[in-house]
Design a binder for these strands. Structure first.
Length: 490
DNA sequence: TTAAGCACCTCACACGCACG
DNA sequence: CGTGCGTGTGAGGTGCTTAA
C-alpha cells in the first residue's frame, strides 16, 4: 500500500521508496513529503506557502519491553507475514548477501536501474575518487579533510572502499590562484599588497620575526622558509604571508630601524602592512589554506581600535575555524601525510590553541577550542628542531639563514612550555568563565594551583630566568621570552 | 479539496547462534 | 566465554485511500 508499484518505462514495476522523514505539515496532512529530496521547503509547503519544519522523531527514545521467550516463534504478526512475502529493497540485508546474488546469475534478479539516492552517492564517490587519484600528481599540495565516518567519508563507506574510508586527511593539488579582474589587481597594487619593501627593511623585519615572533608562535618552518627565500628570493614567498610577517615583526622594530625605513611612524607602518594583508585575504588571493591559517594567526597582532570588527579575537576565530576545516585538530593517523607536514600541522594547531587561550584570557571571553574534540599529538622538540645533518654547514643555506635556523632551534623549548602553560590556562579559564553554572568549588582551584606549581618545578632549565646563561652566544631575545613565560605564569 | 483511518514500512533493540 | 552477525519483533512513522 505505502510502497505503491508504479510502472517504469520498460513495463516493470518500480517500487516507490518512502521518505525517511516528512515535514510537520505533510505529517499532519498525511500526504507524501519530498523534503529530503528537494530540501526545505518541500513542494507541498511551497505550494501552500506554509512554513516547512522538520518533524522531531521519537524513534528509539522509547524503552522497549523484554520479549516473552515462549511467545517468540509461535506468534505470527502481520509484520512477520509481510517479511515472508516478496522482499522490498529495505529488507535486503546489506553486504555479502547481495554479493552472493551477484555471483550466481541463475538466481540473481534482473539488474535494476539505480535509485536516485544510489545514483547521487555514485556521482559523489566518483568526484572524490578523482580528488584522491590526483594525490599522485606532482606540484604544490594542500590539505583536504573529509571528516568523520558519518560525514563525507560516509560516501566512501557506501562504496565499501575501506582503504579510503579509513583515512580522513589527504594532500591534494593546490587549486590555481583566482584570476583577479583588472580592477581588483589595480586595487591591490594601489594598496601596495605586492610590495616587498627595500632589501634592508625586509631583511630586518624577517630577522625580527624569527627572533621575537617565531619563539612564541612557530607557525612557519624556519628551515623551509629560509631555504626557499635563499633559492627563489622574496618572490617564492606568498604575498599574504609576507605582509602578515611584516605586520607581526614591525611591533619589535627599534626607533633607529623605523627612522631608517622611511615610514613616518610605527602606527602608520603597521596599519599599511595590516591593510595590505587584509586586502589580499579579502580578495581570496591565497588558495593554500595552511598559508592562510599562518597569515591570519599573524593578523591577530593587529590590535586596531575598540570599534574595529576585525580585531585579534576575530582573526584567532578565523584561524581556528580554518584549521578545523582542514582537520588540523585531528591526528592524521594512517593518512599518507609525510612526517614534515605532520610536524608543521601540529605546530600550527598548537599555535591556534595557545592564541585561543591567550586571547580569551586577555579579552575575558570564552575560548573557542574544546580540548575534548581534538586528538592532535603533544608537540615535541623533534617537531620544532631542524636536525638533518650534523652541523649548520651541511644545511645548504647561506650563512645568515643557517644562523637564523640555529637560533630558532634554540628557542624550541620555549614554545613547548608555552603550550603546557596554555593547557593549564584553559582549565583555569573554564573554572572561572561559568555564566550559567555554579562557581567552581575550592577543591578545583587547589588542583589547578597544584598543576601550576608542578609545571613551575618541571619547567625546562633553558626557559628559567634564574638559570645562568648557558652560552655567551644566547640571543638577547631568549631572555625576553623567558620573562614572557614567567609573566604568563603569574 | 481536505481530513483521517489504517496498512505497512522503517528503525532500533533483543536474542540466538556460530566462531575463535 | 566473548564477540560479531543475522534475524525476529515492538514501536513509531509514512502516506495511500476513502469518506465527507
Amino acid at each position: 500500500m505505502a510502497s505503491t508499484a508504479a510502472i517504469s518505462s520498460d513495463g516493470r514495476p518500480v517500487k516507490k521508496r518512502r521518505a525517511p522523514i516528512a515535514c510537520t505539515a505533510c505529517h499532519a496532512r498525511k500526504v507524501r513529503c519530498n523534503v529530503v529530496l528537494v530540501g526545505q521547503p518541500c513542494s507541498n509547503c511551497q505550494q501552500d506557502q506554509t512554513q516547512c519544519a522538520l518533524h522531531v522523531s521519537a524513534r528509539g527514545k522509547h524503552k522497549r519491553r523484554k520479549l516473552n521467550k515462549d511467545a517468540r516463534g509461535r506468534c505470527v504478526t502481520p509484520t512477520s507475514l509481510s517479511s515472508a512475502g516478496p522482499t522490498t529493497d529495505a529488507q535486503v540485508p546489506p553486504g555479502p548477501s547481495t554479493d552472493l546474488a551477484d555471483s550466481n546469475p541463475s538466481i540473481s534478479p534482473a539488474p535494476e536501474p539505480p535509485s536516485r539516492d544510489e545514483y547521487e552517492s555514485r556521482a559523489n564517490v566518483e568526484a572524490y575518487r578523482n580528488i584522491v587519484d590526483a594525490v599522485e600528481t606532482s606540484g604544490a599540495k594542500v590539505p583536504l579533510y573529509v571528516g568523520e565516518l558519518q560525514s563525507l567519508r560516509f560516501i566512501f563507506h557506501v562504496a565499501r572502499d575501506k582503504s579510503i574510508a579509513s583515512k580522513a586527511h589527504y594532500l591534494v593539488p593546490q587549486p590555481k590562484r583566482r584570476q583577479l579582474s583588472p580592477e581588483e589587481y589595480a586595487c591591490l597594487q594601489a594598496k601596495g599588497a605586492f610590495s616587498t619593501e627595500s632589501d634592508d627593511l625586509r631583511d630586518e623585519l624577517l630577522s625580527l620575526f624569527f627572533d621575537y615572533v617565531y619563539p612564541i608562535l612557530p607557525i612557519v618552518d624556519p628551515y623551509d622558509f629560509r631555504r626557499r627565500y635563499d633559492a627563489g628570493g622574496v618572490q617564492s614567498i606568498s604575498p599574504l604571508l609576507l605582509q602578515s610577517m611584516f605586520l607581526a615583526a614591525s611591533n619589535f622594530i627599534s626607533t633607529e630601524g623605523l627612522k631608517r625605513s622611511g615610514w613616518p611612524s610605527l602606527m602608520h607602518m603597521k596599519r599599511r602592512f595590516y591593510e595590505r594583508a587584509k586586502a589580499l585575504y579579502d580578495f581570496e588571493y591565497e588558495t593554500d589554506k595552511i598559508c592562510l591559517i599562518q597569515s591570519v594567526l599573524l593578523l591577530g597582532y593587529w590590535l586596531g581600535q575598540a570599534h574595529d570588527r576585525t580585531d585579534s579575537w576575530h582573526w584567532v576565530g578565523v584561524a581556528v575555524s580554518l584549521s578545523q576545516s582542514v582537520g588540523l585538530h585531528r591526528d592524521p593517523g594512517f593518512s599518507d601525510v609525510p612526517p614534515s607536514q605532520r610536524s608543521l600541522w601540529r605546530r600550527i594547531w598548537w599555535c591556534c590553541f595557545y592564541r585561543d587561550r591567550c586571547i580569551a584570557l586577555g579579552m575575558g571571553r570564552a575560548f573557542r577550542i574544546n580540548a575534548e574534540d581534538c586528538d592532535v599529538k603533544e608537540l615535541t622538540l623533534e617537531d620544532l628542531v631542524y636536525t638533518a645533518g650534523t652541523s649548520s654547514s651541511n644545511w645548504n643555506l647561506n650563512q645568515e639563514s643557517a644562523a637564523v635556523v640555529a637560533r630558532c632551534n634554540s628557542y624550541a623549548p620555549l614554545f613547548l612550555e608555552i603550550v603546557k602553560l596554555s593547557q593549564i590556562l584553559g582549565e583555569v579559564l573554564a573554572s572561572v568563565y561559568r555564566p550559567l553554572r555554579e562557581p567552581s568549588p575550592w577543591s578545583v582551584v587547589e588542583i589547578l594551583e597544584e598543576k601550576l606549581a608542578r609545571w613551575q618545578v618541571a619547567l625546562d632549565p633553558r626557559c628559567r630566568i634564574d638559570t645562568p646563561l648557558t652560552s655567551l652566544n644566547e640571543p638577547m631575545a631568549m631572555t625576553l621570552h623567558k620573562y614572557y613565560i614567567q609573566i604568563l605564569h603569574q
